[in-house]
Amino acid sequence: MQVQDAVKLTKKEQQILDSVMPGQDGWHLKSHLKCLKSCPSHDRCGGQGPDGKVCSDQWRDASFEKDASQVFVHVLRNFDFYNQGDLADLTTKSNQVTALRLKFLQQMHVLAPQEYAEGSLRLTQHRRRERAKGLSRGLKLERFDQTGKLECEACAIDFFAIYGDAGFRVIECHHQIPLSHENHKGKTKLEDLALLCANCHRLAHSNELLHGIVALKEYVQEMSAAG
Rank of each mutant, 00 (worst) to 15 (best):
V97D: 00
V97T: 04
V97K: 01
V97Y: 02
V97G: 00
T98H: 07
A99R: 08
L100M: 09
L100W: 06
L102G: 03
L102I: 07
L105A: 01
L105W: 00
Q106V: 10
H109I: 05
V110T: 02
V110M: 00
V110N: 01
V110R: 06
L111A: 04
L111Q: 06
P113C: 01
Q114I: 09
Q114Y: 04
E115Y: 00
E115P: 00
E115S: 05
E115A: 04
Y116H: 12
Y116D: 09
A117N: 13
A117M: 07
A117T: 13
A117Q: 14
A117V: 14
E118W: 02
G119L: 06
G119D: 06
S120A: 07
L121W: 05
R122H: 13
L123V: 13
L123E: 10
T124H: 08
T124I: 13
T124W: 01
H126Y: 08
R129D: 12
R129N: 11
R129T: 15
R129P: 04
E130Y: 07
A132F: 08
A132N: 13
K133V: 14
K133G: 09
K133F: 11
L135M: 08
S136V: 06
S136R: 11
S136Y: 04
S136F: 02
R137K: 14
R137G: 08
G138Y: 03
L139E: 11
L139M: 12
L139D: 09
K140G: 00
K140V: 03
K140M: 02
L141T: 14
L141Q: 15
L141G: 15
L141N: 15
E142H: 11
R143M: 10
R143Q: 11
F144D: 07
D145C: 02
D145Q: 08
T147K: 00
K149I: 04
L150M: 06
L150H: 04
E151S: 07
C152I: 01
E153P: 03
E153T: 09
A154P: 00
A154E: 07
A154L: 02
C155H: 04
C155W: 03
A156M: 07
I157P: 04
I157A: 07
I157Q: 12
I157K: 12
D158M: 07
D158Y: 06
F159A: 01
F159R: 01
F160T: 02
A161N: 13
G164D: 05
G164K: 07
D165C: 04
A166D: 13
G167I: 10
F168L: 08
F168T: 14
F168G: 06
R169Q: 13
R169K: 15
R169T: 13
V170R: 03
I171R: 00
E172M: 00
E172Q: 12
C173D: 03
C173V: 13
C173G: 10
C173A: 03
H174P: 09
I177L: 15
I177Q: 15
L179F: 14
L179V: 15
S180T: 08
S180N: 09
H181I: 01
H181S: 09
H181R: 08
E182H: 11
N183H: 15
N183G: 13
N183E: 15
H184L: 05
H184A: 04
H184E: 04
H184W: 15
K185W: 03
K185S: 11
G186Q: 14
G186R: 09
G186F: 10
G186T: 14
K187R: 15
K187A: 14
T188F: 12
T188K: 14
K189F: 15
K189G: 15
